[in-house]
């Protein structure tokens, strides 16, 4: 198994937002901007139960992609990437199971700690499920120019 290309890992580490695309029952893609949380092996996204339709889509079709496209949200890094992978929903404990990812989340959004302390104000927002993505393939545009063909890295096989 090939590891995530280092420049793409840097994008994942920096990204304040990425675009998660899942496939609806009717076959159409639907895209949700979310904070990607990268632990070096898998990509995690969290979804409040308030906005849980995406979880239904993932359960119905685990093939997803996460794109990192906005230079502003990527700390002005020039690269762009789309990571395709297989996702699963982790919802053993919507109340607190997702909190194991708080250290990564806090690095990107420090205010989340104080929001969580005040969870009484919006309790359903902090009932959350995790979407865990096992990356399978990466499309990478090192200079962000998508009119050029991307570098394609098959993480489950060899580089193309």
């Amino acid at each position: 198994m090939t590891s995530m290309p280092e420049p793409v890992g840097r994008l994942l580490d920096a990204a304040l937002v990425g675009e998660l695309t899942v496939v609806r029952r009717d076959g159409r893609p639907i895209t949700y901007p979310l904070i990607p949380l990268w632990d070096g092996e898998r990509i995690y996204l969290t979804s409040s139960v308030l906005f849980s339709r995406k979880l239904d889509h993932v359960k119905g079709n685990p093939r997803v992609s996460l794109s990192l496209t906005d230079p502003v949200a990527l700390g002005d890094q020039p690269g762009r990437a789309t990571i395709q992978g297989t996702a699963r929903v982790i919802e053993d404990d919507p109340h607190g199971g997702w909190e194991r990812l708080m250290p990564i989340w806090e690095r990107k959004e420090p205010a989340i700690v104080s929001f969580l302390k005040a969870r009484v104000a919006l309790p359903l927002f902090f009932e959350r499920a995790l979407i865990e993505i096992e990356p399978a393939r990466v499309l990478f545009w090192p200079d962000g120019q998508t009119t050029k063909a991307p570098q394609v890295v098959d993480l489950l096989g060899e580089a193309a």
Binding site: V22, V23, R63
Partner: peptide, 19 residues
């Protein structure tokens, strides 16, 4: 300033490209 174009590829995975 830019958009993300997305479709579902023949292999069933979504493909997203900034444009």
């Amino acid at each position: 300033p830019f958009v993300v174009l997305t479709w579902v590829g023949d292999d069933g995975f979504p493909v997203s490209v900034a444009s």
